[in-house]
Design a protein around this nucleic acid. Structure first.
Lengths: 347, 347
DNA sequence: TTGTACGCGTTATCAT
DNA sequence: ATGATAACGCGTACAA
């Protein structure tokens, strides 16, 4: 009689649980248990299984496991741009921490074409198809409808570096408002009289909050803003904006710039395009979005964020939701402080 | 008689093909075909399916699809560090291009703990568990045993920015040798007499090739190297190495630095620690590992790489292997050129 | 402790 | 064009 013979483990092509079981002369469940940390297997069978597995070069299939357990151990991470200095370091750390817990990062870049709300939504729906266990949204918008959907299917979402009116999602941000206040304090202490602000993207919560704190503190000292312009979190735009700001007769003598990336552009504009001295002619305070190692040639007072703390908080929240099944969203606001940074000579 | 009733689509929890099929009053195959681009479905049923799907908020399960089709549409990308400026931009672009083709990036950071050969191998085995369709190894080592394994299971591997004696893998690199030659030409044209070289990590092929081309060109001009020291591709190490190099009576008057990240450190050392003028006292040539936007305060002649071209080549190779089933590995060497770069005043 | 059998959600094969 | 049914590889009750 003919038996339906499974094609022998070819050598080419992954071998499976069944292959290992056959070779070891045990059942598939025995093999499965061998590769399940807290399972009960007899030493002897365990050994035989491991031997067979090694012989076949067996590696468990994470996809099949996901289908069966409904846990992918994949975290979807969405980021708008990687060339803006701040996120690469965060993603690296995030990935490291998650890997240490057996999770992996599926990366999504929300480029121009889908940076709109709708595009964003469809991108997240993309992610959902991969049955991710959690989602980190780094500085990107997300419709509340979508957040609700994630909530309903039990997928924790962490908004990183962005607050938004989304009840269902957790959020991790720096204390941008306090940072704005600190910036104002620094400039006022240094005797600034005509104070300007160069904003980031107008619809970003980070820029808004930094401005908010800044204005609050100015108001508290009965001070008013001398000038304001948007730099759109862009190097070139910020440089042009600075020239624009200084094209009038009455010029600012102090600037708060919504992030360091732009602050560098501002200093280039001041020194190169306008021939001014920094900080003699103009005081500049930035906001730390650029890792120390990337600094060059600039000395700047900056409001320093604790990206390590932000990252750890993000991971902690994610794991808490995933593994402890906690449902209530959490909000974490990490502290900031004003520091002077430079890798080169003060000019 | 009792029928085993499937729990109705709960609203919570993803709805499945079967749910949609039930609601639309068709078979699961009909639904499947509706979501398969090139399938034959009657307009009428298609409409009913789509309506039911929308009503249920149905999204196909990519994991289940992977199990069935044995194509995950996931590309594993391994990178050692993200804070070294060069890779974030590459990964961003890589992810964009792959997304445009319906692929996604599963990110792996090979941090210190697993940067050894063994650690690296186990990391790649990790990747294999996710049934990735392809692997990009950005500047990390990989044992040939492992490469052979990938080959045997039919997973294309591209070594990015790193050549290695691995027959089975494709490789994409800049023309580092030619870049080294160019660097030598530039320095010689500028009348350099005592020429020093600051290497990257000694076991990295990029640093080796840059040095090789550099030495070749010097030899062709009957010139010899005045000094050599390792900067280990690290900012701090390079800065210290530079001080070391200049602690002797006879000092170099020209330096070729294996990448820009270190070149910045070198210039800081020269100007700040040693009080020298650049380029009056010392000529410096770097090698472009840092995106333009991250430059600040430095003016430098650098050997520019075409990271866009490198990325496109990587994607092209990957797709060629995956979708056309091409088996023979490919080698791509992208051109380089010497340019002067700065975002601020020459000092 | 071990094995059997079913389910996870999808695609593929083969009739109809 | 459509529908039943068998994989895909693994976890896991349940039974032995």
């Amino acid at each position: 009689m003919t038996e339906s013979v499974k094609p022998a483990p070819t050598g080419l092509g992954q071998s499976t649980l069944a292959d290992v079981a056959a070779l070891a002369g045990v059942s598939t469940s025995a093999v499965s248990r061998t590769f399940t940390p807290g399972a009960s297997v007899a030493k002897k069978t365990r050994a035989r299984v491991l031997e067979a597995a090694k012989k076949l070069g067996y590696r468990p299939n994470a996809i099949a496991r996901t289908l069966s357990t409904r846990k992918s151990r994949i975290i979807g991470v969405v980021v708008s741009y990687l060339h803006n200095q701040f996120y690469p370091a965060v993603i690296e750390r995030l990935s490291q921490l998650l890997q240490a817990h057996g999770y992996h990062v599926l990366l999504f870049i929300s480029s121009d074409s889908n940076s709109s709300d709708d595009g964003m939504d469809s991108l997240v729906l993309d992610i959902l198809q991969y049955q991710v266990d959690g989602i980190v949204l780094a500085s990107t918008v997300m419709s509340s409808r979508l957040a609700a959907h994630c909530q309903s299917v039990g997928i924790p979402v962490v908004l990183f570096n962005r607050v938004a009116p989304v009840e269902e999602a957790s959020m991790v941000t720096s204390d941008n408002i306090e940072g704005g206040r600190l910036a104002a304090q620094v400039l006022l202490e240094r005797g600034a009289r005509r104070i300007g602000f160069i904003s980031g993207l107008e619809d970003s919560s980070t820029s808004q909050d930094r401005e908010k704190g800044f204005m609050e503190e100015l108001a508290r000292h009965r001070k008013t803003l001398f000038a304001r312009i948007s730099g759109e979190y862009d190097f070139g735009v910020a440089r042009a904006a600075t020239r624009e700001l200084f094209s009038q007769k009455k010029r600012p003598d102090a600037l708060f710039v919504a992030n360091d990336h732009m602050a560098f552009a501002v200093m280039d504009a001041l020194r190169i395009d306008l021939g001014l001295n920094v900080p003699q002619d103009v005081q500049v305070v930035g906001f730390d979005d650029v890792p120390q190692a990337a600094w060059g040639g600039y000395q700047l007072t900056t409001i320093e964020q604790d990206s390590e703390l932000m990252t750890r908080a993000t991971v902690a929240i994610l794991l808490e939701h995933i593994e402890s099944g906690a449902a209530t969203p959490r909000r974490v606001v990490t502290p900031v402080r004003a520091v002077i940074r430079a890798t080169t000579l003060p000019l």
